[in-house]
Design a protein around this nucleic acid. Structure first.
Lengths: 369, 369
DNA sequence: TTGAAAGCGCTAACAA
DNA sequence: TTGTTAGCGCTTTCAA
């Protein structure tokens, strides 16, 4: 293409008013569908608008109504299917209520998140849905709260920040999943998460700051303690970032003198890298290693074996977040209910009994064989 | 949460000016970083702004600059990883140039796409990136063109619409992929796409309207003709929508007296359903059926066998689209180069020779055995 | 029901 | 360098 057409001046209410031979205010009323206008005039104005190709300027409109009919969404990584699906839910629900969505991707970077909040606030969005990258720094979110614009947190709550949160019950499903593993005889269960944690190492009592991860871990550890396993936190690994980092972690884990017989991956991106590494290592699932991952995407049914996963109603959670936010925007009084969703364990084929050899452990009388 | 704080009145330049004891325009200059302001005054104004917690109103700013520093992106389905990745590329490139992104999802519905265009135009975005759902109706896109706002088409070009298009060279890679299949001995190759086509059936000379699909198909058919295969279009299937629809198509295909020995899936969503059906049917890949899909996502390395795919630089294409659009927005004269990307065939394990039994065909002297 | 006029918060001429 | 004065395109008083 070579000759971009000149940018034409937009047709305004004034133009339409002139064409329809009415006052500007009258035309605006007819066009904006507010106030009182006689049918005759309305028709005339609309005809004029049509003829001129009039389109309202939503910016101007927002400026004096103070509402933009737009919600801002801040996600860590739109490439992550979790957020893709959640965003879809948000968009659909927003559209249903006549709201638009501005999406900002932060690449899971807190500074970018702070920028994003500022930008969206400056654009005067009516409210914000945020899946906070790290809940270390949260001043920017508290700031949102203080502007009085509604804020809904997706997937992660933040200690001491009294806003709506839409999340799934991670602790209990994590417990259930881990229990499934211990019931099968597993005694060494690893848990891998992207969360970067102070000092890089996990220890009891550490403040994990991202509630969804903390909850998952809590369930995982509790189930192991309930099964009488000593020191369940020894195989917890954080800071699993990027394919290379995850690969390294898995290799280290499997090189242990007492390697895990099962791995729980905290999200689908980790799972992909874990499985890739497992394949490189020539290990078989579930023969050599049992595997459970958080989130249920269609490809997990196509691996051999299909994967045992934890399924969250991600789309619905996104939609719920949007509906709740818009409710707040419209000043509705909302009950706190329905904000916690249930996740379920979907058993497919990636969990088996640990091999006899590796079953060996302090509690196993056959260990000497 | 129970007591949403009252929505505070925003602090404006006027407030800051008063606090700093300067004229409104002076404060605005200092704050907006334009015009000339003495250092002393600038400091005073900024201090006042800081103290008051001033934040610019970008809407007001956009209103008289006529620029919103925002680009609109319209995609069919953000849940589709293709668009997730492309959107990520768009976002990153846009952010780099100081632009924000408004994303609208159309659920691959043309009416929704028309709405989306209208909404974004009304919001006065500076430009639009669209991956058009169906190029049947394109008036709304021509309308964008006529407002003089730049428009970049992603993945699909539209006949007779003279705008920038960012796409990959689909015809040649499709040819190459199909050639790979015919070289392996395949004579019955099916091609499955979501595209809905008039009449529901494909026939030679039909106007496919979505260029990326038309190109793929062109390559697929040409390779077969070059290999001397008669009637290569007999196994072309369109309208593959939703898991159920795709499943039905695959079942019908495999129930043919002369079923295909290879399937090419036009995108990853189709691939997922095709493979699910193949698994249900108890068929093995590539033993019973060879398989190639468009787009390369990490999970395709984890299936057994790993899948042979066609890889496009999706992220880069998104980024390129954004850069090109922003270039146009800024009125730069741009060459038409660099707008066509190269896709490559990644050979993994899902293509093999057709079984001897099914190899039988009119050109095969062994068919009687 | 209609019109005139005053803003919304900012930028942009134009003077001083 | 600073201030004054108009707008941007719309909504919203307030009168008529």
């Amino acid at each position: 293409m070579n000759n971009p057409p000149p940018r034409r001046r937009d047709v305004t209410v004034a133009d339409v008013a002139r064409e329809a031979r009415v006052a500007k205010a009258t035309a605006a009323r007819a066009l904006g569908d507010y106030g009182a206008v006689s049918d005759a005039v309305r028709d005339r104005v609309q005809a004029a608008a049509e003829a001129l190709g009039y389109r309202p300027n939503e910016l101007a409109r927002s400026m004096n109504t103070g509402k933009s009919n737009t919600i801002g969404v801040i996600v860590g990584d739109i490439e992550n299917p979790y957020f893709g699906l959640a965003t879809r839910g948000i968009s659909d629900a927003a559209k249903e209520q006549g709201f638009d969505v501005i999406l900002v991707n932060t690449s899971e970077d807190v500074d970018a998140e702070m920028d994003a909040v500022r930008v969206l606030l400056d654009k005067r969005v009516d409210g914000l849905i945020v899946a906070p990258a790290s809940s270390g720094k949260t001043d920017h979110l508290r700031a949102v709260y203080e502007t009085g614009r509604p804020l809904v947190l997706l997937d992660r709550r933040i200690e001491g920040l009294d806003v709506d949160v839409v999340e799934a019950d991670m602790a209990s499903v994590a417990y259930q999943a881990t229990r499934h593993l211990t019931d099968a005889g597993h005694r060494r269960i690893a848990f891998i998460s992207t969360l970067d944690v102070e000092g890089g190492e996990f220890h009891e009592g550490i403040d994990l700051r991202v509630s969804s991860v903390a909850d998952r871990l809590e369930g995982v550890l509790r189930a192991q303690r309930d099964a009488g396993l000593p020191d369940p936190s020894a195989l917890v690994r954080f800071d699993a970032n990027g394919a290379a980092g995850i690969k390294r972690i898995v290799r280290e884990l499997m090189a242990l003198s007492d390697p895990p017989t099962a791995i729980i991956a905290s999200d689908s991106l980790i799972a992909l890298s874990v499985l890739g590494t497992v394949r490189e290592l020539g290990l078989s699932v579930p023969g050599d290693l049992s595997f459970i991952m958080f989130d249920d995407f269609e490809w997990t049914t196509l691996t051999s074996p299909p994967l045992t996963v934890i399924s969250q109603p991600i789309y619905e959670m996104g939609a719920a977040a949007a509906r709740r936010l818009i409710g707040r925007v419209q000043g509705r009084q909302l009950p706190d209910a329905m904000t916690k969703f249930t996740a379920t364990l979907v058993q497919r084929g990636s969990v088996g009994r640990p091999r006899a050899g590796v079953l060996a452990g302090p509690m196993d009388p056959l260990s000497a064989i």
